[in-house]
């Protein structure tokens, strides 16, 4: 992404620095260290994923970055501005969505947007026009006069995002933007996120869905118990676990035991039987021995219905990094 390069100069206080930079960020509530030494360096442009279960510290970190709470220790800068000492400069550049910041449900979508437009400096008539434009872009023109509490789940996510771009943000915090949405609405939100990135906005996305992070994020920080346990592109994260998975299905289930013994001998690793009576799976360090193993099976007259060697899924990566699955804290906080 070459966003920073062609971003227009705005105002006299042109700011520098990466989108987000934190050092040793700590925030505790009582005796709980919700954020326990988070270091982040997030460049401008693109989508950065925050991946982790509920209670991992994602939300607290973002609340610090958005100037809603002050850190107990460490520093955080957004576009070079300190979140404590230059909070106004930070607030002028970031937008929050979802559980981070809600709209007034008793007001209509149009009123909410006009209110924000006015506060953010649009004169009355321009503010009204801007609200109309944004509502139209998100397909909410017909719902503009309805109270936000009467919106459907998908519309609610859209008005949330719409409200966050009344003034173009440099950085937008998207909080689990697709939790609870059906696959179609999910794709819609993903399309919108990609459009935001094309428009030059850096997106920080929290999610519990690995495929969402895989689909959207350029880089991912895996957060667990208040610290960043891993960081990298989805591909790097998968590679960092250092293994691939070999999945094999024998043609005749009665040959599975023999196949398993043979594979264990050639690969030198544990081979597990799967629920499928013909299936076997092994975690392998590299692809070299796999070819030999497959040849050995052929020589032993064990026919294969199917085999596949793939990267581990992000789910497997998450499990390897944190010792527990992402599903440990399921996404049941439905805000719809």
């Amino acid at each position: 992404m070459t966003i920073a390069a062609d971003a227009p100069v705005r105002g006299p206080d042109r700011d520098d620095g990466p989108a987000i930079e934190t050092h040793g960020l700590v925030k505790h509530f009582g005796t709980t260290r919700a954020v326990d030494g988070v270091d982040l360096l997030i460049p401008r442009g693109g989508v950065h994923g925050f991946l982790g279960p509920n209670g991992a510290g994602k939300t607290t970190t973002i609340r610090v970055l958005a100037t809603l709470i002050r850190p107990d220790a460490g520093t955080a800068r957004v576009f070079g501005h300190d979140v404590v000492h230059e909070a106004d400069a930070v607030r002028a550049r970031v937008s929050l969505t979802g559980q981070f910041a809600s709209l007034d449900e008793d007001l209509t979508g149009d009123e909410n947007l006009r209110l924000l437009a006015r506060l953010l400096g649009y004169p009355r008539a321009e503010g009204r026009a801007r609200a109309e434009q944004v509502l139209d872009a998100f397909g909410l023109t017909e719902a503009a006069g309805k109270q936000v509490k009467k919106y459907s789940g998908g519309m609610r996510r859209r008005i949330d995002i719409a409200a966050s771009i009344v003034v173009r943000p440099d950085l937008i915090f998207l909080d689990e933007p697709t939790t609870g949405l059906d696959p179609r609405s999910r794709n819609q939100v993903w399309e919108v996120v990609r459009a935001l990135v094309r428009g030059g906005t850096t997106v920080l996305l929290t999610t519990q869905y690995l495929d969402e992070a895989d689909q959207l994020a350029d880089r991912i920080s895996v957060i667990d118990t208040g610290t960043v346990v891993a960081e990298g592109s989805p591909g790097e994260l998968k590679a960092s676990v250092g293994t691939g998975s070999l999945h094999v299905r024998v043609r005749r289930p009665e040959q599975r035991a023999a196949a398993r013994d043979l594979l264990q001998r050639v690969l030198g690793v544990e081979v597990h039987e799967q629920g499928d009576p013909a299936g076997l799976v092994a975690t392998v360090a590299d692809a070299g021995p796999v070819a030999r193993a497959l040849t050995a099976l052929e020589d032993a007259q064990i026919g294969l219905a199917q085999y596949a060697l793939g990267q581990p899924s992000l789910d497997e990566v998450f499990l390897a990094l944190t010792g527990h699955a992402t599903g440990t804290a399921p996404a049941q906080e439905d805000q719809a």
Partner: peptide, 28 residues
């Protein structure tokens, strides 16, 4: 948009346009 079903095909061009058209006036 077809409000009855809630189906909405995102016009990402419009979203993009709305985004970049957003001026940044001085807050109130």
């Amino acid at each position: 948009q077809t409000p009855a079903t809630g189906t909405w095909v995102p016009d990402t061009a419009a979203v993009h346009e709305a985004l970049v058209a957003g001026a940044r006036p001085k807050p109130q």
